[in-house]
Write a protein that binds this DNA or RNA. Structure first.
Length: 801
RNA sequence: GGGUGAUUAGAUCAGUUGGUUAGAUCGUUACGUUGACAUCGUAAAGGUCACUGGUUCGAGUCCAGUAUCACCCACCA
């Protein structure tokens, strides 16, 4: 028996426990086809927000859908707990920087603190009803993941796709590490545009405008566009840099824009990426003046030891004193920053490990086109990114909490010593190489590689982690390729791209068949969710408590795939209403199924045929949408049908259900069979969105299975071709109801006489459903006149006594 | 500046290959306690489908341009 009222909080707790205790979502090998999902391991950065609910719910609904369609669903969860975001979380929490407490101690704290946050994540996802098998869960910093990540590195090294090189790299003076192109972000900064007077040895004067005057000591040349007539006379001469008094050549390059600033550019090593390009192209000397900590290097005269910002002030003062500063104008401009901390990027030059991506763009594009992108237009974002790649993928990070490179160097000849596969996982700082002597020079002492890998170098192998790559017990056979990757559109260029890179290098194959890209949660139209503004209900736990997990999932399912969604109380309330309606409709059905025994039957009444046919039509659309990952559109279709089912069909059929003596046994059985069948189907359809309330109803009324979530959808066979006629009769019912409303009387008011003009055809159908029709509208007398049109309501006489 | 998408009722969103009066929910208004449901029901009001052109017998839907928003990229002298 269903309770009188549905208590979501109590029932959600109950069914969550049941699912976990009964291992309803446990993955076991069997002969069913596997459907596997590569879901994003959330970054453990201490910040759980509403966006997590949104994208993870959508993926989860696909898992439930595929389970209902008979697939053996492989859906493991993970946590991305290595790398900078986790380090920053820990540093914030202990209020100390990593280098202040030392590597070993710091890593220990990282393990502990990230584990705490993972429990919180796990709790949230459980409460949301995420149907994962936690036995399959992984952490990107676990020994197993480290082993697989190192294995991946060695495989790429073996295939000559990684190399070590001294090369310019993006450097963060806040995080004290290099980072990858993909981690760049643009931010707006207030700054000043300084017009500085230069001269040439030959006696000319010219002006260069710059936002970074502190880089004057790093100038190695000056560039002018070869077609710039105004400045052409300077090309080939020697420029004298003011204040620092150094001479550099004036060269020509067509990358210079004639009309920008004075049309003359200073080239520093390094101020931006163009500088690096020119430095390479023209083999310019290196003057690297920025220290890792964001100061001017000590050896630089006058300005050595100053912070970048202080050096800027000082050099502007000196320029002004010397009469070199023509003018200074304030500007707000975009500056490239490190996305993890927002600090403007600097450049450094050091030994780094790189993965070659520039040489295989064509291959990555090809793999990209072998994957089905949902929505399809998301593929062009991937293509654009691959086409725009300018750097190889730098995977060295001068950090602590990450996967160590399985690498040592010979102390004498610097030969690279790779770990052996069977030694993994290794920490070269602790472990020693298995060889005793350097194979190149015979020397017998080695030093460890101290850098760790970029986080993406590990999260890009989640398919390998999922398949337990090279483990004895593995899933390699069923996960090559995986069925689905899901993520939001912002990490196409990182997570999706890098995973494709690795899959191509390891297996020469696409990592997944389908990719499903979701949008973002917005606070309102065009308003981004932001922590500082606090413009969204920030605590997902509170939202679940307030509205129930089912209602939150309902909100998360709304909208088209790939488009942004707003945080909307209205939608949450709408979900709550739907849950209530579903529960109450089920109670009505339950009431009439007390002694019901299902059996083969096909002699349905007219309105039963009508609603069954409508269902079949709806189901087709529902399945089609879900097969295309259009979760929201499937829900729309389903919901529309459901409200019609309640407001119209149940209102019609309840008379027959209550009064079998008046309508007949067979006729009443037809109604029972219809509601028994359709409610079951609707519960299944809703179960992917509302797993808790549907389970409660299913177990209360049907209980034909361990859980509704392990039942199977069998397509509805009913199709009686009466949809049009039924819809027309419904229109007539609506007109008569409208008449009652306009007279301000109850819908139970009797109709003394209803006069209808009907086509002969429609009249035949009405005859089949006549008793239902009359009972629904409380009609005493019905007068029908046959015409050529479909129908017209001629006269409604209400019994207004 | 470039790529991709979005722009529909006061709010949140649907509208599947172009085809009659553009749909739903919330909110508003009126009415109705009807044996699942007042966390309800019935109905009403509410839209120049961002703007400007074009294709077509016919455009919310296709094309071009403009504006605004979002994600990504480039520039960042």
């Amino acid at each position: 028996m269903l309770d009188k009222k549905y208590n979501a909080r109590e029932k959600e707790e109950k069914w969550l426990k049941y699912w976990l205790d009964e291992e309803v979502y446990k993955f076991e090998r069997n002969d069913k086809e596997v459907y596997s999902i590569d879901t994003p391991p959330p970054t453990v950065s201490g910040n759980i927000h509403i966006g997590h609910i949104f994208s993870y719910s959508q993926t989860e609904m696909i898992a439930r859908y595929k389970r209902l369609r008979g697939y053996n669903v492989f859906y493991p969860f993970g946590f991305d707990d290595n790398g900078l975001p986790s380090e920053r979380l820990v540093e914030k929490k202990i209020k100390k920087r990593a280098h202040q407490i030392g590597r070993e101690e710091f890593n220990k704290l990282c393990y502990e603190i990230t584990s705490e946050y993972e429990e919180e994540f796990k709790d949230l996802f459980n409460k949301l009803g995420v149907s994962t098998d936690w036995n399959l869960a992984y952490k990107t910093i676990s020994p197993e993941s480290i082993k697989i990540s190192q294995e991946s590195f060695l495989d790429l090294a073996n295939k000559n796709h990684v190399y070590k090189a001294e090369s310019p790299a993006l450097w963060c003076t806040e995080c004290l590490t290099t980072f990858a192109q993909a981690e760049l972000e643009t931010n707006n900064f207030d700054s000043s545009f300084n017009h500085i007077k230069f001269s040439t040895k030959e006696g000319d004067n010219f002006v260069i405008a710059t936002t970074r005057p502190e880089l004057l000591p790093a100038i190695v040349s000056v560039f002018i566009n070869p077609e710039d007539e105004k400045n052409a006379h300077l090309i080939g001469k020697t420029a004298v840099i003011p204040v620092v008094d150094v001479e550099v050549p004036i060269l020509a390059d067509d990358k210079v824009e004639k009309d920008k600033g004075s049309g003359i550019v200073m080239c520093c090593t390094f101020g931006d990426q163009t500088d690096i390009e020119w430095w390479n192209k023209y083999k310019l000397p290196l003057k690297h003046i920025i220290s890792p900590y964001g100061k001017i290097k000590d050896e630089v005269p006058v300005y050595g030891g100053l912070k970048i910002s202080d050096a800027r002030v000082k050099i502007l003062e000196d320029l002004d004193k010397g009469g070199f500063l023509v003018k200074t104008e304030p500007i707000n401009h975009e500056v490239q920053t490190h996305e993890r901390c927002g600090k403007p990027v600097e450049y450094t030059i050091m030994d780094q490990w790189f993965i070659d991506v520039i040489n295989h763009k064509e291959d990555f594009l090809k793999i990209g086109s072998e994957i089905n992108w949902h929505p399809t237009y998301m593929k062009s974002r991937y293509d654009d990114w691959v086409n725009s790649l300018a750097w190889d993928w730098c995977i060295s990070r001068q950090r602590y909490f990450g996967v160590p490179f399985p690498v040592w160097y010979c102390d004498k000849c610097d030969e690279v010593i790779y770990a052996k596969s069977e030694e993994l996982p290794v920490n070269p700082l602790v472990d020693k190489p298995s060889i005793k002597e350097c194979p190149k020079c015979g020397h017998d002492s080695f030093r460890a590689e101290e850098d760790v890998m970029d986080t993406w170098a590990t999260s890009s192998v989640t398919p390998l982690i999922n398949m337990r790559y090279k483990e004895k017990e593995n899933y390699e056979d069923i996960l090559k390729p995986m069925s689905l990757r899901t993520n939001a559109s912002d990490i196409i260029r990182t997570w999706d791209f890098y995973t494709i890179v690795k899959s191509f290098y390891h297996f020469n194959e696409r990592p997944w068949r389908d990719v499903m890209i979701s949008g973002f949660v917005m606070a309102g139209k065009g308003e981004k969710i932001s922590k500082s503004k606090n413009n969204a209900a920030s605590d997902p736990f509170k939202i679940i408590e307030q509205y129930s997990a089912d209602a939150v999932r309902y909100w998360a399912a709304s909208g088209r795939l790939g488009t942004d969604i707003s945080y909307s109380e209205e939608t949450l309330l709408r979900g709550k209403k739907l849950i209530n309606k579903l529960y109450n409709a089920s109670k009505l059905v339950e009431l009439h199924l007390e002694n019901y025994k299902d059996k083969q039957f096909d002699d349905f009444e007219f309105f039963d045929k009508w609603i069954l046919s409508k269902y079949t039509e709806m189901e087709k659309a529902y399945l089609k949408y879900l097969d295309n990952y259009e979760i929201g559109l499937a829900l729309n279709t389903l919901e529309k049908f459901f409200w019609n089912f309640c407001d119209n069909y149940l209102e019609i059929v309840k008379h027959r259900l209550y009064r079998p003596e008046e309508f007949g046994e067979k006729e009443t059985f037809s109604a029972k069979k219809t509601v028994y069948y359709l409610l079951y189907k609707l519960l299944q359809n809703f179960s992917i969105y509302l797993p808790f309330v549907t389970e409660e109803i299913f177990k209360g009324i049907y209980n034909t299975n361990k859980s509704i979530h392990t039942s199977l959808i069998e397509k509805s066979p009913y199709n009686f071709n009466v949809i049009k006629e039924g819809d027309m009769l419904l229109e007539i019912i609506s007109i008569v109801r409208g008449s009652k409303t306009n007279h301000n009387v109850s819908l139970k008011t009797e109709v003394s006489k209803l006069s209808l003009d009907l086509s002969d055809d429609l009249n035949q159908f009405l005859k089949e459903g006549l008793n239902d029709f009359k009972a629904t509208l409380f009609i005493k007398e019905l007068d029908i006149n046959i015409i050529n049109k479909d129908f017209e309501v001629k006269d409604i006489i209400l019994d207004l006594e």
